[in-house]
Design a protein around this nucleic acid. Structure first.
Lengths: 192, 192
DNA sequence: GGCACAATCTGAACACTGTCAAGATGTAAT
DNA sequence: ATTACATCTTGACAGTGTTCAGATTGTGCC
């Protein structure tokens, strides 16, 4: 696993480091991640990442952006029927499924201390999946088109996204809270 | 601020450490917290906390339990009218207000890596504020009494708590997401 | 081809962190 | 007074991210 190499230059260290960090987070979450561990997995010295990402935050930002891309794929693959209610449920389930499938990445995405939120690519990446959900919410409420500047639409979407966001967080921590031991995520979907 | 002392024994180091940690988190969040910094603020050596709390997690658990007590007070002070809708809004606002007033503590409470969630006092402390909200949700839905084992009740409450939880998280991060620049937390309250 | 230059990676260091084992110090009980 | 115990200090260890001088390599230019 240490990924030794013969040449002094790695070839594509940047991509290798991103992949290494992505794997570490997928396997053990953010707790077990360290810049040195990622460097070692890529078969490189501890200070090599600095040249490509500046800091650990820089590397983690790349992983987070990848995660946003991934959740976007989850969402895009769901909810293409002509039933707005079924679509809404499918999209919600897709979002929560992503969180359950990739808990480490999900937590990373919303950790402002680990991710550089002022990265220029961040707004677009983070909004894209939300936009898809927003459209579904809008359709669910019977609107043919939506306008985020309209108070009512924004409130609806804000409500739905809040609920989804919180739902995912609660589901990830559900093992520890004895509040709803027999409630699955579907219990919620039936509501929204 | 280093809090020097003359006697070899501190007197009430346990309480002093909890207060020091609480202050640090209130001032700079979890990012700037360190066991050594808390020890220094209490005027004590870096390894003194170990004897009282075992590990840093032990100390942070105390701070988190205090925070649960605090959010409980926020909630108990709100929503005592005879209007279930107004109560619901007041309780929700109280919850979000706590998150805005104490962002460091709010984030700490749900960080399983920093807090010992298997602490025996944890279930009671964390459920108490939720119970108050659950009753309000139940009343809001026109139930005179609620039964968490009943599917419908649990789903309603799960939905409401999810929404609140997610709302607080989004509000804390709202400065960075350009999604809803002109949407305040009230936009949501009007919905639930 | 050969050479200067820029990019890339290493190695060693620094200032941190949490944790631990031994010893110093004070308190309380016998 | 002496013994037992709780408490705090000292010093160390392994680990972290980051920095910087230098070693190594690929690239473009003559």
């Amino acid at each position: 696993m240490p990924g030794k190499r013969s040449t002094y230059h790695h070839g594509d260290l940047r991509a290798a480091l991103i992949q290494a960090a992505d794997e570490i987070i997928a396997e053990g979450g953010i707790e077990v991640f360290s810049l040195r561990a990622a460097a070692q997995r890529a078969g490189v010295s501890p200070s090599a990442p600095a040249h490509h990402f500046g800091s650990a935050k820089g590397l983690l930002t790349e992983v987070a952006l990848l995660a946003f891309e991934r959740v976007g794929r989850y969402i895009e693959e769901a909810g293409h029927s002509d039933d707005v209610v079924a679509d809404m449920r499918a999209l919600s389930l897709a979002f929560v499924t992503f969180a359950v499938d990739h808990p480490g990445h999900f937590r990373l995405m919303f950790r402002n201390d680990l991710v550089n939120r002022s990265d220029p690519r961040y707004p677009e990446m983070s909004i894209k999946p939300g936009m898809r959900l927003a459209l579904a919410v809008s359709a669910y409420h019977g609107k043919s088109e939506m306008d985020l500047n309209r108070f009512e639409d924004a409130a609806d979407i804000f409500c739905a996204l809040s609920a989804l966001h919180g739902l995912a967080h609660l589901v990830l921590a559900e093992k520890t809270t004895p509040f709803f031991e027999n409630a699955s995520s579907r219990d919620f979907l039936e509501k929204e």
